[in-house]
């Protein structure tokens, strides 16, 4: 799933889709943690997943706010259009 998320990130040009792919990747990472925790029979994996979750939430907030700004500024959601830091 991580690989799928990575692929989606690289392929899609729309920033919304890129954010989505990021979520997929985070989810996949969390899944890995949980499985590890279950393997060793400890609660730590779940703890880490909690943190990942909260971090994902925070990131989604800020990310979407940025998406709004990008839309207002560049009138499009094309990721390549925001390449002003080129160089």
């Amino acid at each position: 799933m991580f690989a799928l998320g990575l692929t989606g990130l690289l392929v899609r040009r729309n920033v919304i889709f890129m954010l989505m792919s990021l979520e997929i990747m985070l989810n996949a990472a969390g899944l890995a943690f949980i499985v590890a925790g279950a393997r060793w029979g400890q609660a730590d994996g779940q703890i880490v997943f909690l943190f990942i979750l909260s971090m994902a939430a925070a990131e989604v907030c800020v990310g979407l706010a940025l998406v709004l700004q990008i839309y207002r500024r560049f009138k499009s959601l094309d990721a390549d259009a925001v390449s002003e830091m080129r160089g």
Binding site: V35, A38, Q46, F49, L53, V60, L64, L68
Partner: peptide, 25 residues
């Protein structure tokens, strides 16, 4: 796998809040 708490959390927070936020935007 054996993490019911996390399963619930996943549904509530991830699917429930974060995705809904996406949909809103």
């Amino acid at each position: 796998i054996g993490a019911p708490f996390i399963a619930a959390l996943e549904v509530i927070i991830y699917a429930g809040a974060i995705m809904v936020l996406f949909v809103f935007v």
